[in-house]
């Protein structure tokens, strides 16, 4: 599996760079876009995911075809209201096969939030790599606010594996940071809307 990954790693990096250029061109005149980033899933991370077992069976029979975040992109925007605006541009420019608004299941919980898409890699970007074995059909795109992004990055940096059993105190601390981030987003959005309305009324 590592050999297969190594064989296409350079191609994947080129495709990720082209995706970045494409997203940048699309959004360069859009206000409140803090950053656009693309990445190729690291080999170890890919191998970890490819090796997952569910009910004593491999989760992925053909990992290169079935794992859809080998190529990833992220757009970070200033305010919550910007997410919808940017998502409309994305849905018009790319063909999506999946859209998920990720929020904690329980209304009393605070945790990871973000809008996730699975999108076809546009054919002109796939271009010369068309027909190369194991080149992904899709890429995953996340749209987040600055605070959603900072919470997710901070939490990821702590090194907990997804689904790990955390003690109550740790859970509460993580939820506290998530709640603070959620609150900051809400306040910024409210302030932005107020100022915009003020501009109109003045």
């Amino acid at each position: 599996m590592t050999d297969f990954y190594d064989a296409i790693e350079a191609d994947l990096k080129n495709i990720a760079a082209s995706l970045h250029d494409n997203l940048f061109h699309l959004l360069e005149r859009v206000e409140h876009v803090d950053r656009i980033a693309t990445r190729v899933k690291a080999c170890m991370s890919f191998l970890d995911k490819a090796g997952k077992v569910v009910d004593n069976k491999p989760k992925y029979k053909k990992p290169f075809q079935e794992i859809q975040d080998i190529l990833g992109a992220r757009i970070v925007v200033f305010y919550k209201g910007d997410i919808e605006y940017v998502s409309k541009i994305i849905e018009k420019a790319y063909n999506p096969v999946e859209k998920q608004q990720l929020i904690p299941e329980d209304e009393n919980e605070f945790g990871y939030e973000g809008l996730h898409y699975v999108l076809f890699v546009p054919p002109h970007i796939l271009g010369q790599y068309r027909g190369v074995p194991n080149i992904p059909t899709f890429f995953e795109l996340q749209i987040k606010t600055l605070y959603q992004h900072s919470w997710a990055q901070g939490e990821h940096g702590l090194g907990y594996k997804p689904g790990a059993q955390l003690d109550r105190d740790t859970k509460r601390k993580l939820a506290f940071v998530a709640a603070q981030s959620w609150g900051a987003d809400e306040m910024l959005e409210t302030l932005y809307q107020q100022i915009q309305r003020g501009k109109v009324n003045n």
Binding site: K92, N95, P123
Partner: peptide, 13 residues
């Protein structure tokens, strides 16, 4: 199905 090239991407290209 749909054309692989969206209107936006096609027009940009």
């Amino acid at each position: 199905a749909q054309s692989a090239i969206t209107s936006v991407q096609g027009t940009m290209n």
